[in-house]
C-alpha cells in the first residue's frame, strides 16, 4: 500500500430518504453513536427520488462511495413503494458501473429504519473501511493523472 493510500480518507455521499434512513441517521446522533466523519448526507423525500444520475454525478465529482438508504422492504416506505424503485435503479446502475470501470461496491443500498441509529452508524463504519480497501475512486485518479504533464 502506498503512502497516499494509507492516509486515504474516502469521501462518501449519502442520499437518504426523509422518513426512515434520515431519521435513523438522526437517531444515531441523538444516541451519540460515533462513526467516521467521511459521509456527507443529502436528504431527499423518498429513496425512489434518487436518480442514478445523482449517483453518477457524485462519482464523477470524486466521491469514493455513495450510500443510498431508504425504508425497509416491503412495506415501510412512506410512499408505498419508492424503496422498490430505488432497489431496481441501484441494481441496474451497479451493472453500468462495472462497464465504466468503477467497482460496483462503491455504491451501496441499505434499508435503515427510524429506530436503527446503530445500524446506520455500523453501515457508515463498514462502508468507510470497505472503501479504504478499494482505494480512491478510479475516475478521480484518471483525472489527476491526465492533468499531469
Amino acid at each position: 500500500m502506498s503512502e497516499a493510500q494509507k492516509d486515504f480518507e474516502p469521501k462518501i455521499v449519502g442520499f437518504l430518504c426523509n422518513w426512515c434512513a434520515y431519521a435513523g441517521a438522526d437517531l444515531a446522533g441523538v444516541s451519540r453513536i460515533q462513526y467516521p466523519p467521511n459521509i456527507r448526507i443529502i436528504r431527499v423525500m423518498c429513496s425512489g427520488r434518487i436518480d442514478p444520475a445523482f449517483i453518477l454525478e457524485a462519482l464523477k465529482n470524486g466521491a469514493d462511495g455513495v450510500l443510498v438508504a431508504g425504508c425497509h422492504l416491503p412495506s415501510d416506505c412512506h410512499y408505498l413503494s419508492g424503496n422498490f424503485k430505488a432497489l431496481r435503479r441501484v441494481m441496474l446502475l451497479k451493472k453500468v458501473l462495472k462497464e465504466l470501470g468503477i467497482e460496483p461496491e462503491r455504491v451501496r443500498l441499505e434499508w435503515v429504519s427510524a429506530s436503527e441509529g446503530d445500524k446506520f452508524a455500523a453501515v457508515v463504519r463498514d462502508m468507510v473501511e470497505q472503501i479504504k480497501k478499494l482505494g480512491p475512486n478510479p475516475l478521480k485518479m484518471e483525472e489527476t493523472e491526465g492533468k499531469q504533464p
Partner: peptide, 14 residues
C-alpha cells in the same frame, strides 16, 4: 443543514 444530529453528535472526538 444538519450539523448536530449528523455531525457534532456523531463525531464528538474529531
Amino acid at each position: 443543514a444538519n450539523i448536530r444530529d449528523q455531525c457534532s453528535w456523531v463525531h464528538m472526538h474529531e
